[in-house]
Design a protein around this nucleic acid. Structure first.
Length: 869
RNA sequence: GCUCCAGUGGCGGAAUCGGUAGACGCGUUGGACUUAAAAUCCAAUCGGGCGUAUAACCCGGUGCCAGUUCAAGUCUGGCCUGGAGCACCA
């Protein structure tokens, strides 16, 4: 075995070996229990970044740990390979996005292999390949058949830079999630997926997700935004046309209905023109035009003072008989509720601001009896008792909500209503590089789905990527015209492609049965592998991908394609990789290229470091010194094995009676096995796992130093050369027992047979424990020591509970809760002896002298606390 | 404004049940080895008492203020600070 660690050499060798021999292939059939470990698959942007390295290393270690613990592990990878960057790159260089994507995939595949990830590459899925998107289209058709996909004209989010519409979830602070440009409103006819039909189940089932962090669940719950309230319909008394009209409103505060002093409709409200008088028409039109012009950001800003104009018409409040004016104001949103708001300025801060500005009347209807408020300076939004509310006076407002709504129900002008903030998912994209939406528009028969036997609808190749302002797909001379599957007449194809989040909403199902060309996946196989036991990925998908995937699972379940309710049992959202306190990004120029780390230190160092300093869920601060430290540690591990290779026997025998120092080392190993196993099992605390690796390695070195020292004393000084050409001498000063002196003892003649057995046990255990992280080093060492097969097929180490603790403990003696003395005692000491020893300590005697011992608390195996007065 | 998370040395972070605060590492300092360096190894490293050193000892200390307890980084209540998410959703 070479005395020096050359990671580049051994890593290249094993990478090729594992790849050629498909070492990590997973069979669907096995007697072992299944375990599905999944990383969020990457977009093939060109190169891996450190976020990927962190994500995939975490999942890989989990997969390897589970495999060693007897599970049949599914650990797949693939490519979320449709999307804008490919198309933009193609436009820039007038090339084919497929070629760009393929090149990126092949480069990144090499990087993933280099990183030593234990993927079953036979299950690789690539969403932009026809053998995958055929099934994406097929699933679209199933949802269409079920009525979960529909087309409608709506105000949609338009990103001018990307030249396409976006889903609500893809608009962050009024900006496009991908390119950060300001989103505009457009009225377009678009395809939607009815995610709202599952709003309630998506919310309710969050409770089933005990393996998810509360932060993600809260975000989803807020996004779904369920609220309970009522719909009231207010008759219009003076509609200009003389028509009998009513304005329905949704409110969560039916208890305040007697306090309405005006009503607001959104500028885009559908009946607004019919509700505007001739005198007010011009002002209303101007206001609406202005609202249209305004950007989303401007409009949604809560800092902006509210504006609005009266329509000139009025409604009657059926509860009071009072009439109140109608206004339009842009603080009412057309997409939410009914697009109209009943305004109660006394009990709603927004209505209050608006009423103040336009001097609208106010009427107090809820009061805290202990501390009544006239609502002159601010709205009272807390609980209280009703006043000025006819027969409801004196009722608690929480009860009045129900009673008042019930009255509206009984009298026919209202109902109970549950409302969601969640909107349907807009999935049309006016772009080329996505899965074509499989429908045609027949001149006679209208919208017709493409028959399943005609799938996939392939992306045309004869397109011009240099066009500006429209989708390249529209330039294809062959794509557009087709025949109607119903009447055989002329039809045109849908030119829009699907949101790539559709593709990524079912890829984790495809992995279970990735090469099936008869169906999207076999139901039994998917039921066997799913749900995913551990999903690992970035928090940025807390809503987008994770909500869509949950929806897909439920929808596909209802299509009869699978039998479970939730796709991801446990979710680990890993923190960001930072450099100098901020997120690594090209624009900040603080990125670290994984290739450079592989080249300079090797993949094992990269893996070790990315796990070492922070727990997975927290942000990770990259430091070059930290990498260096990990590299040094692996060198230290290597030297430990290399210098002892001669003395390590894979078939070591441990006797039950060992010399004290040997017993201590054996115990240290058992403690490491226990600690490391527990740390991985509990929340994947890899940072402490790595601390424990270091502790174990330190313990083995310390043991060796001890052996050396006793030998140095017994057999005198020795010198010897070695590969480092550092000939060292064991001198009295060197009673420090330096590592050189150990290396110098190349013949290791100072070790007894018992020593060698203990050392073998320690080093073999160390290698097995480290094998999920330092995958290459441990494999190489395993073989150098004569190990058969792969160390990655070895079962996980077991510990003996009796040996997983040290033979002595430090008894802590406190007086009134403060540590005053520490005594080394036997680990098996009785409670009585603990107390006796503590009270007999000279220090304690001195300190308690002349005081009264009130109480003595003994915590077995830990401490004694003496309470004195 | 609402929701969630976090606050521990110079830094990253440890600390199953409330039971020795600061594991492990980085950095720094000193030392061994070397002609010298690199590498490696050994030691020290929360603050104060304590500006000669060494050893020993004492006191304080986990964002702040209270509380529970023999005992609080850990539990309870109230604040402060930072981060993330949502945000005119009626």
């Amino acid at each position: 075995m070479k005395q020096t660690y050359y990671p580049q050499e051994i890593e290249k060798k094993w990478m090729k070996y594992w790849d050629d021999n498909k070492v990590f292939k997973t069979e669907n059939n096995s007697d072992k229990p299944k375990y599905y470990a999944l990383s969020m698959f990457p977009y093939p942007s060109g190169k891996l970044h450190m976020g990927h390295v962190r994500n995939y290393t975490i999942t890989d270690v989990i997969a390897r740990f589970k495999k060693a613990n007897g599970f049949n592990v599914l650990h797949p990878i693939g490519w979320d390979s449709f999307g804008l960057p490919a198309e933009n790159a193609a436009m820039k260089h007038n090339a084919d996005p497929e070629k760009w994507t393929d090149e990126n995939i092949s480069y990144m595949t090499q990087q993933l292999k280099m990183l030593g990830l234990s993927y079953d590459w036979d299950r690789e899925v690539t969403t932009c390949k026809p053998d995958y998107y055929k099934w994406t289209q097929w699933i679209f058709l199933q949802l269409y058949k079920k009525g979960l996909v529909y087309k409608k004209e709506a105000a949609v989010n338009w990103c001018p830079d990307c030249g396409t519409v976006l889903a609500n979830e893809q608009v962050i602070d009024g900006k496009c999630w991908r390119c950060d440009s300001e989103v505009e409103k457009k009225y377009l006819s678009q395809w939607f997926v009815k995610i709202t039909e599952y709003a309630d189940e998506l919310l309710k089932d969050l409770d089933l997700l005990t393996g998810w962090g509360d932060n993600v669940k809260t975000m989803q719950s807020n996004w779904i935004g369920k609220s309970h309230g009522a719909i009231f319909r207010f008759p219009v008394i003076d509609a200009p046309s003389g028509e009998k009209m009513e304005v329905p409103v949704y409110t969560t505060r039916p208890d305040t209905v007697h306090g309405i002093t005006y009503l607001v409709v959104a500028p885009e409200y559908k009946d607004i023109e019919k509700l505007t008088t001739a005198e007010n028409k011009q002002a209303v039109e101007e206001y609406r035009a202005n609202a249209r012009k305004m950007s989303e950001i401007e409009r949604l800003s809560t800092d902006r003072t509210k504006t609005g104009v009266p329509l000139g018409t009025h409604c009657k409040n059926p509860f009071t008989g009072e009439t109140f004016p109608l206004w339009t104001a842009d603080y009412a949103l057309v997409e939410y509720g009914t697009g109209a708001v009943m305004a109660v300025p006394t009990h709603d801060t927004r209505d209050f601001d608006f009423a103040k500005k336009y001097s609208l009347p106010m009427k107090v209807v809820i009061q805290n009896p202990q501390n009544p408020s006239n609502c002159e300076t601010e709205a009272y939004t807390e609980e209280g008792v009703l006043i000025n509310s006819n027969e409801f006076n004196g009722m608690k407002n929480t009860e009045a909500k129900k009673a008042i709504t019930q009255k509206a129900v009984d009298e026919g002008f209202g109902e109970f209503k549950t409302q969601y903030r969640l909107r349907d998912w807009l999935i049309s994209r006016q772009r080329y590089w996505g899965a074509p939406i499989p429908v045609v528009y027949c001149d006679k028969c209208g919208i017709q789905p493409v028959p399943e036997d005609q799938l996939p609808v392939l992306l045309p190749k004869d397109v011009d990527f240099s066009v500006v302002g429209k989708s390249p797909i529209t330039t294809s001379p062959t794509f557009k015209d087709t025949v109607c599957p119903v009447c055989g007449g002329h039809a045109t194809r849908e030119m829009d492609t699907m949101d790539t989040f559709i593709c990524s909403s079912w890829y984790y199902l495809r992995y279970a049965d990735a090469n099936n060309d008869k169906e999207c996946f076999n139901k039994d196989i998917v039921n066997k592998w799913l749900p995913v036991d551990q999903y690992v990925g970035g928090i940025e998908h807390a809503i987008l991908h994770l909500l869509y995937s949950r929806f897909f699972t439920k929808a596909l379940r209802d299509c009869g394609l699978l039998d479970f309710d939730e796709p991801f049992k446990n979710l680990l959202t890993q923190g960001m990789v930072l450099k100098d306190g901020s997120k690594m990004s090209k624009s900040k120029g603080n990125t670290v290229d994984p290739d450079e780390i592989f080249e300079n230190y090797g993949a094992d160092t990269a893996r070790l470091f990315i796990l070492s300093d922070s727990p997975p869920a927290r942000d990770f601060d990259w430091s070059d010194a930290g990498v260096e430290g990990c590299y040094k540690f692996l060198n230290r591990v290597w030297r430990l094995v290399a210098t002892n290779a001669e003395n390590i026997n894979l078939n070591y025998q441990l006797s039950s009676q060992l010399a004290k120092d040997n017993d201590d080392l054996v115990r240290a190993v058992h403690m490491s096995i226990k600690g490391i196993t527990n740390d991985i099992t509990n929340e994947f605390q890899f940072n402490t796992v790595i601390s424990k690796y270091r502790e174990l390695v330190n313990a083995i070195y310390d043991w060796q130093n001890l052996k050396m020292r006793s030998c140095g004393a017994a057999c005198g000084s020795k010198t010897a050369g070695n590969e480092h050409s550092t000939a060292a001498v064991v001198t009295e000063a060197g009673a420090q027992g330096t590592e050189q002196s150990l290396i110098a003892q190349a013949d290791n003649s100072y070790l007894t047979d018992e020593d060698k057995n203990v050392l073998s046990f320690a080093i073999i255990s160390m290698l097995k424990l480290m094998s999920p992280v330092a995958v290459y080093l441990t494999e190489e060492a395993w073989h150098e020591l004569g190990g058969e097969g792969s160390i990655h097929d070895q079962p996980w180490c077991k510990w003996d509970e009796n040996l997983a603790k040290s033979s002595s403990i430090t008894l802590v003696v406190q007086i009134n809760g403060k540590v005053k003395d520490k005594i080394e005692v036997d680990a098996e000491i009785s409670k009585e002896d603990m107390e006796k020893q503590a009270l007999n300590s000279e220090k304690i005697k001195a300190l308690t002298d002349g005081k009264t011992v009130v109480k003595v608390i003994v915590v077995p195996g830990k401490l004694v606390n003496i309470v004195v007065k």
